[in-house]
Design a protein around this nucleic acid. Structure first.
Lengths: 211, 211
DNA sequence: TAGATTGTTAATCGATTAACAATC
DNA sequence: TAGATTGTTAATCGATTAACAATC
């Protein structure tokens, strides 16, 4: 909506993280240039598709005989994906999964600050990995003060809808839901389902040749 | 490959879990029939698309004036997705995330047995939630004996590629990788990246209107 | 220069949407 | 019956692939 020619397909967008992952790996090995063919071979896609995708985000065209500059490309993709504008997020539910995510180091690379977790049980209140775990009634106050719009929901399935209603009331508009339950939310709130079992089942399907 | 007319698009396949989640929610509320329009409204997609998708997997056509039988549809989708053929899986890395997943109850509904975790550190060996945590050197033996082809990789990023090589050598052919690293694998091994930060970043992008 | 690799235009392919007849 | 809802055929739309000229 800011850029003039703004034609990036959803499909292309969804492939960007894979490019980024691969490119960072190459960068770590000291590689300076990659060809579209190399990326394509590694990721199991077509080289023309890679070139088209990269052309969408690259600030510098690829050089014939060399390919694309790895470092530059990483920056371009990160910028494109918005990893440079910081977002605050909270975790709802400080059980095993919630605590593991709270302690997870990887978010900072993506422009995400996970600032705290919340739990209904007083026994869970305290801190994990240097980050605070608050009781649920602190939620409205804290998310307003920090402008938090994004929540990671890691409560047990039976508690998910109630917790969802509560955080939506408090002002959350985007939810990453780990509970294997469909969530009813009002218009304007987006839910993304991170269903571990579904991911795993899909993987099994792939490897066993799902019909 | 088993069924004669075997034309299910990848796109349709990827929508099935969402239908399933919604339908199970409705079933839990005692709803017996749903119309394609109701599903479409809840999921934010088109009703015609829903009908097309459901027609692909439903063993019974929808009834005009009623819609589709919820319970039957759930069974059909589960059968279609292969949730009825059981698969054994193991977890590599018994840190916070690995232990949380080991204790996770949700896999059994999807035809997946997570039978054990493995960790390089002797300190982690033992049991979590009634399931064993073995030292890494037990891996080849145990996966062969249990016919395990699927592994969930939850080791730290720096250890991911080495662990990957090790389990691929041992006979794993499908990997659900939680480490935010690109993995080099030989042909025939499939990797699925479960990058929490990417998921969260994508969600943020959606809600803030990614270009 | 020669040749590898890029970017782009046109053609194919697949998936979604629109229109409408069929059905309980 | 009337009407809501389905299933299907045809049309549109978008994305991928193929072919090839441009470039360092």
């Amino acid at each position: 909506m800011n850029h003039a020619e703004n034609a990036v397909s959803k499909a292309a967008l969804s492939r960007m993280p894979a490019y980024l992952r691969f490119l960072k790996g190459e960068e770590g090995k000291g590689v300076q240039y990659v060809s579209s063919a190399a990326v394509a071979a590694a990721l199991g896609v077509s080289a023309v598709g890679v070139r088209k995708d990269l052309a969408l985000v690259s600030s510098l065209p690829g050089k014939p005989r060399f390919g694309f500059e790895v470092h530059r490309l990483i920056e371009d993709i990160e910028k494109f994906l918005g990893y440079h504008r910081w977002t605050n997020a909270v975790i709802i539910g400080a059980g095993g999964l919630g605590r593991a995510i709270l302690a997870y180091e990887g978010f900072e690379n993506y422009g995400i600050h996970v600032i705290a977790a919340f739990d209904a049980s007083p026994a869970k209140v305290g801190a994990v990995g240097g980050k605070p775990v608050y009781p649920m009634d602190r939620l409205p106050d804290i998310i307003v003060r920090n402008g938090v719009k994004v929540a990671i929901l890691t409560v047990p399935r039976a508690a998910a809808q109630a917790a969802c209603d509560e955080i939506v009331n408090a002002g959350i508009t985007a939810i990453l839901n780990f509970a294997p339950v469909y969530l009813h939310v009002p218009e304007g709130v987006s839910v993304r389902y991170e269903d571990l079992a579904v991911s795993l089942a899909a993987l099994c399907g792939e490897s066993t040749g799902n019909q």
